[in-house]
Nucleic acid binder design. Sequence first.
DNA 1: TCAAAAGTGTTATAGGTACACCCATGT
DNA 2: ACATGGGTGTACCTATAACACTTTTGA
Lengths: 247, 247
Amino acid sequence: MTDSLKNIESLIQQKDLYSIPIDDFFKSAFSVDCVIFGYHDCQLKVLLIERGTEPFENYWALPGDLVYPTEDLDFAASRVLKDLTSLTDISIRQVKTFGKVNRHPLGRVITVAYTTLVETTELNPYASSWAKSTAWHSLKEIPQLAFDHLEILHEARNELNALVISEALWSQVLPAKFTLTQLQEVFETLLDKKLDKGNFRKKIQEYTFLQKLEESQKNVNHRPSQLYCFDQDLFNKAIIKGFNFEM
Amino acid sequence: MTDSLKNIESLIQQKDLYSIPIDDFFKSAFSVDCVIFGYHDCQLKVLLIERGTEPFENYWALPGDLVYPTEDLDFAASRVLKDLTSLTDISIRQVKTFGKVNRHPLGRVITVAYTTLVETTELNPYASSWAKSTAWHSLKEIPQLAFDHLEILHEARNELNALVISEALWSQVLPAKFTLTQLQEVFETLLDKKLDKGNFRKKIQEYTFLQKLEESQKNVNHRPSQLYCFDQDLFNKAIIKGFNFEM
DNA sequence: TCAAAAGTGTTATAGGTACACCCATGT
DNA sequence: ACATGGGTGTACCTATAACACTTTTGA
């Protein structure tokens, strides 16, 4: 091994990775970028950060970070999510890897895009060392984004529909006990189409992983709705059996 | 920028990349691995190489290579395909990125998996600097593979079905003029299920990108078959219009 | 008793599946 | 004439879409 590589190795084995000059990661680095979609009340948004450093200082961008030499790719994505939202135990899925030579002005950086879906209410995104501020943006009002992040956002939005179905991502934006109307609203927002109430409910009845509870809504000025819950284990078993969940 | 990084930079800017000691790429490198599926005569195979160097010397593995600092990710995958098969103008698609810390014994290597489908006949895979030999393997008889390549192969096989439909990959394994029976055989092999002849043909008629030619088979001891051709432009247009190709 | 949203039922149609049958060619 | 694979037609059944209707609550 050459001396130059020994130098790098000693650098990256230091505990405090933040103290490494940014230049030292570059010329051959990989990063993760997270497209964190947020749902609340029939509104789909995306979490963006305002960059506090060059390049693209003051631009909005997807939250992301370089991958530390000692962490798995998936872990790095989870870490970014946790740093911003304090959320753990949220599944975050790989979308695609972006590796054009000149996508990053400071050097060669290949980035792996991840996406997930969370509930936006009462979620307080924190600014971090690399972010001046953070905010939920409506998908209809996306500002100019740094790097190739607009392209990444588009790809993730396309992937979201598939994940909502195949990974039951929708369960991450509903309370433990929810009504069928709430569930229908989630699907309508994410898939961006109106669904017929009757037909929707007919389908739901076939899905054993959606279980009717004995409980119902209270204090509403209309007929109270039955509450349902989602059984992740039953869902996984159904998927393994080759079951195909559609809407 | 530190001296150590300047050293690396000067190394990687040399034209003859093969002359760089393998160690110098490591501790933070990215590679591409290609899952090249081959079809001929109702048989689906995959192209494997026998490694000529450590680690995993003499093991079978997916063909792949480190990504040069000056090439795009997609280009690197095309290059690996071309080196082995001489094929160009074949679309090769990203599957997923594998980034576990210890997936490569010599250091941190993140690999981006690509997949494609080609015709196996008369295709002479070349051995290269890093491969002792190459061979098509039946998917039912996969030897022990190096690294996490078995997992990569599985993921790619799952992805193949989707790509066959959405990207018309099947057109890459048929001659320019083909019969509907040939087409049906391709689908049956790739999707791994029997299709009804009548129903298959009924669907084909709806697809304008499959055009009936004036020509038919010759010198067969049964009724000669109509020949068809595939129009990639019409297919692309149909996809853009939101058309959903299914089988 | 009324408004509002929950929840159920009915019907028409499109699309898929299964299967039977006819057709054109070389030997 | 017959074997072989190409090619077509039909009848059934199920999934879906559209829409109307009934039910239960609070005010």
